[in-house]
Amino acid sequence: MSPPLTAHVAERPGSAGTARPRLIVPYIAMWSGETTEEEPRLVVLPSRTGIGYADEILGDRDSRGVLWDRATLDPGHGTPRFAQIHVHRQRRAMRKLLCQVCAGPADRDDDGTLWLIPDRTQPWPNWPEGMAVAEPPICRPCAHLATRACPALRAEGHFVIRAREHPIHGVDGTHYRPGPHSPVPVTSQPVAFDDPAIRWVLASKLVRTLHDCTIATDL
């Protein structure tokens, strides 16, 4: 089943006879009708060069050979889970530079593509140059909507950044090491495609790095 090309609209629960305002659900958000493997059946490859699924199929790896987390596709069914990101929709939005909310083209002008980033970083010299992001870009209307409606952005703060260059860098996911019976999870962090450690990662998000950046003031 192909993923939808737009965000979903859900209704907020309300009492009988009262209006129920619409709730915009971002394209990359998970729904309760979609499932992931909480304890994936992973094995150490015979060559001990990485991990794989015990019942691995062709679609479990991307063109670079990276192993990806599994999730069913059933958007719009059940209730939205805003704190959880759907692995396949995040990957598609990031790869095609689609808006993380509506799945339309992300906004782009002479200063670059628009990103709305939660304030979870410690700035460094020349920040935000070289920042690795797992949040897909965004369009201007959805950026306005998100800054008003998203509790996490209001609580944590946010940055609005334009980047002229934003190459795909690697993945974010769970790192494993060999265990006595099966691979053991160690940590979760971004890893570059050219890092040999990526063979031990179960990827859940595609990561880009932002370059030639400006802080946007036009929203």
Rank of each mutant, 00 (worst) to 15 (best):
A143W: 03
A134S: 14
R140G: 05
I168A: 00
V160G: 09
P141Q: 06
L153Q: 09
R162A: 05
A163Y: 06
L145R: 12
R164G: 07
H166D: 15
H166W: 06
I161W: 03
A134M: 15
A163R: 04
C139N: 02
E156T: 13
C142V: 02
P136A: 11
L153I: 01
I138A: 02
P151G: 08
P167G: 00
A152G: 11
H144R: 15
R154V: 11
E156D: 12
C150S: 15
R148L: 14
H158F: 15
C139E: 05
R140A: 14
C142G: 05
I168H: 02
A155G: 03
C142D: 12
H144Y: 11
A134Q: 12
P136R: 04
V160N: 05
P141Y: 07
H144V: 15
P136M: 01
I138W: 03
R154Y: 08
I138C: 09
C150P: 09
G157F: 03
R140F: 05
R154G: 08
C142F: 06
A146Y: 08
H144Q: 13
P136I: 07
P151Q: 02
A152R: 12
E135G: 07
I138R: 00
H166E: 15
R162K: 14
A152D: 12
R140N: 09
L145D: 11
I138K: 02
